[in-house]
Design a binder for these strands. Structure first.
Lengths: 195, 195
DNA sequence: CGACACATGTAACACGTTACATGATTTG
DNA sequence: CAAATCATGTAACGTGTTACATGTGTCG
């Protein structure tokens, strides 16, 4: 539902046609989440069908501008008024993956955590670099979005570290190999985690 | 794609039928993300169509157990090996909403932030309470999931606070009304943010 | 003119949700 | 037996992605 409401919000600033709407959306988020142009038109059609939006007769050339209706404005106001519920959010693939990795035989969870940590760390650095490159405080919207990504990535790394310490505390197999173990045992462990 | 891989991962522990798979999934996440049973069957059908899974002939009563194939195992291993990319994640509705609220006339962003903060705070407390209730470290998978939710909620609150301070610094309209402003100006401002 | 950006649309497909329909098995 | 739970499936719909088809305007 986020595209639907996004287009509605953009039309809340005034009439616009599909192509403009995509540009405006990608301006606000700086192509963090690219928006396919086809989706814009199908979504506009659905919005019109539902009476939240109305096609304007004017429009020079091949432009078909739309305008938000009163019903649309009400829907938009409700969107802004209602907080985003956590219950309605998409499933967190990473959390599910680690949760399942933990109970699937033959999976080296610590390796999964490590690889994810590397990827997330790289993403975090990309975000920070992007933010520095473009520090002008003129487009607040974009700054807030990139900050959201940064906060999320930081939280993810903290969680991954938390996972690792928790795993070490419970499932054993700590990385500094205890010298007291016989060689056979350590070999068995590393074989299991490498396959 | 997360359900597809989740079912595949569950079948990686051994053959199972649809109903079992749902139970197993909701065990791992404790119904944080409820899984509709219908979805299980359609997903299983697609997995079978793609050769990742094979229906077993046996099965007592009305049970139709499935088994993971070698192709499926390869796909599963790749899932666990490949980190979850941030580029492929769903759009962050909250970030988009605040970003758009900032550039939509007639929207009181600070109110939006406040309402969201309240909702997220409540959600965070729910999570913490849930975790305390069920502190037994026996099912690690569930603990990791609830911790993920907690870390995310904390990050969201930090981000919302960050948004508010940023907004105050830029767009003005600080809550402690500066006594130096003439009454007319403050009235105009509060009218704009209230409508 | 030819290439390129602007602009609109459609078709096919994957995924997810909800609701409904239908049996089989257990248990009070 | 009746009700609840177990178990499988289908239909309809909304949303999202990708790819394709088409036309317009501009500029070198």
């Amino acid at each position: 539902m986020s595209i639907r409401h996004s287009l509605l919000a953009l039309l809340g600033r005034g009439p616009a046609y599909g192509y403009q709407l995509r540009s405006a959306f990608e301006d606000a988020t700086r192509a963090t989440w690219p928006l396919n142009i086809g989706q814009v038109y199908t979504t506009l059609a659905r919005l019109e069908r539902d009476g939240l939006v109305r096609a304007l007769p004017e429009g020079e050339g091949s432009q078909r501008p739309y305008e938000i209706t009163d019903v649309g404005r009400a829907d938009l106001a409700e969107w802004f008024t209602t907080p985003v519920e956590h219950a309605g959010r998409p499933r967190d693939e990473l959390a599910i993956k680690l949760s399942l990795a933990l109970s699937t035989p033959g999976v080296d969870i610590r390796a999964v955590v490590q690889r994810q940590r590397t990827a997330t760390m790289r993403h975090l650095q990309d975000c920070v670099r992007l933010k520095r490159q473009d520090e002008n405080p003129r487009d607040l919207p974009w700054l807030l979005v990139i900050d959201a990504l940064i906060f999320q990535a930081e939280a993810e790394i903290r969680w991954l570290d938390h996972c690792e310490t928790t795993l070490v505390r419970h499932a054993g197999t700590p990385p500094p190999l205890p010298a007291t173990l016989p060689a056979a045992a350590t070999r068995a462990v590393s074989e299991r985690t490498t396959s």
